[in-house]
């Protein structure tokens, strides 16, 4: 399980709160965890991808109440620079215990920021709970817009949910699934920076979660750090989250591992390709990893 990182436990889980499940992407894990953490003081605010000026254009926001948290439910398949608020959260919002949700690259940025706080004065010890999501790739807003409006022939204002799963990008409106396109079509709209990413399941998060591996309506949850373990176990005890064993769950960890391996080996090959060893006339491109 090399590509799944270190973890203390893995669960099939979903929210224990019907309100959250009603508008959640899958199991509603992120919203439930933060809602529980907010209610119990594990965190005093969470940086989440809130609604932006245009439909499905996420804008980072700091939720300090469960109501605000609910505004950010559901996945938006575009870039939300959540890290941009990490210092502001400790300043004008005065947070001492920050929750942050992010893609694997954003969680990497959180950890780098904690160990190398070049410009993050007094921030490193204020990150209380970093929840990572599974992420294959992300799309710039214009790319997402084109996928929805051109390829799926759906007005983005009418979309009620978007989803990636089983090899398809699906767009839902009030009438249900409106349009589906094969993921292959979406590849050209991916953010280039995603192609050098070597993390699929947020290996450095306190808790990481995503839909892959568990049946519809559930999420796969990796509990990784001591802080993550403490918070998750308490949330389960308090009934905010229903967690079950992954044993015998189909498609299970095998699929998670398969996708992780696919993404990481593909991107490792791309990083190798960027060195232009086959083309001595081309100078190498920069490799960020040391």
């Amino acid at each position: 399980m090399e590509y799944l990182g270190q973890y203390k436990a893995v669960y099939k889980a979903k929210s224990g709160c019907e309100d959250i499940l009603a508008k959640s992407q899958d199991g509603g894990i992120v919203t439930s965890m933060f809602a529980y953490a907010l209610e119990t003081g594990i965190i005093d605010g969470a940086i989440v991808a809130g609604p932006g000026s245009e439909p499905y254009k996420p804008e980072p926001m700091i939720a300090t109440t469960v109501e605000e948290l609910f505004e950010a439910r559901g996945t938006k398949y575009s870039i939300s620079p959540n890290l941009a608020l990490i210092k502001e959260a400790t300043r004008s919002y005065g947070l001492d215990k920050i929750g942050i949700v992010g893609t694997p690259c954003q969680i990497q940025a959180v950890r780098k920021g904690q160990l190398y706080p070049i410009g993050l004065r007094d921030v490193p010890d204020k990150i209380a709970l970093a929840i990572g999501i599974f992420c294959m790739e992300n799309f710039p807003y214009q790319g997402l817009f084109q996928m929805v409006e051109d390829h799926c022939a759906t007005k983005i204002d009418n979309v009620t949910k978007m989803d990636i799963g089983k090899g398809k990008f699906s767009v839902y409106t009030e009438r249900g699934v409106n349009s589906q396109i094969p993921l292959k079509v979406t590849h050209k709209y991916e953010q280039p920076g995603c192609h050098v990413c070597l993390d699929y399941v947020s290996n450095m998060a306190d808790i990481s979660t995503g839909s892959v591996g568990t049946p519809d309506g559930w999420s796969t949850v990796f509990v990784r750090s001591a802080a993550g373990e403490a918070a998750f176990n308490k949330a389960v005890e308090a009934g905010w989250i229903i967690a079950e064993s992954m044993d015998g769950v189909k498609p299970g960890l095998e699929l998670v591992e398969k996708l992780a391996t696919e993404k990481i080996t593909k991107n490792q090959a791309y990083l190798e390709h960027r060195l232009h060893k086959d083309h001595p006339a081309l100078k190498p491109l920069r490799n960020p990893y040391i």
Partner: peptide, 26 residues
Amino acid sequence: NQGLCCGCGSCAAVCPVRAVTMQFGK
């Protein structure tokens, strides 16, 4: 330019003079 930006926003957070803002994820 090197095709590496992941749009996380770290740069905007740390700029001491707020010269960096995030627009359309970059």
